[in-house]
Amino acid sequence: MFAKLVVNHYEAAAVIIFGIGLSNLLLQRNLIKKIIGLNIMNTSVYLFLAAKGYISGRAAPLLIQDAAGNWINDASVYVNPVPSGLVLTGIVVSLSVTAFALALTLRLYESYATLNIDEALLKMTREQEALEENLLQESDEDVLL
């Protein structure tokens, strides 16, 4: 069990970081901290993928020349290029999600002056109650008149 953890220490670390990010995303009350959690979560996936793609002792997946100056076409010389491609795609995706989430957070702050989503709900219900009370008072006044 532990021997496997040591062999796969990058992956184990990635999964632990993923857990940290996920719990931040779910449990933090502050929206900015939630979004930071989201980014930690995504970054752990990049670590996981990079660790999976790396094969020790091999070159980066760009064509290299041997001593005689010939291009080496043999795939067994290079590391796996697919995970790097996936990481790049993942970075683009998480960038756009983060930007959009931050934009929404800004709008929430403009409307409620808080970064806490539960507090925003509370404020909204209070406002509604106050509105309803006002309406009731007005109708009472109508009756008195």
Binding site: L22, L25, L26, L31, K34, L38, V97, F100, A101, L104, T105, R107, L108, S111, Y112, I117, A120, L121, M124
Partner: peptide, 16 residues
């Protein structure tokens, strides 16, 4: 404001 709040909540759950 309610729809922004709903969208944010949806966004967080979707991201999870």
């Amino acid at each position: 404001p309610e729809s922004i709040r709903a969208a944010l909540r949806y966004m967080i759950m979707s991201s999870v």
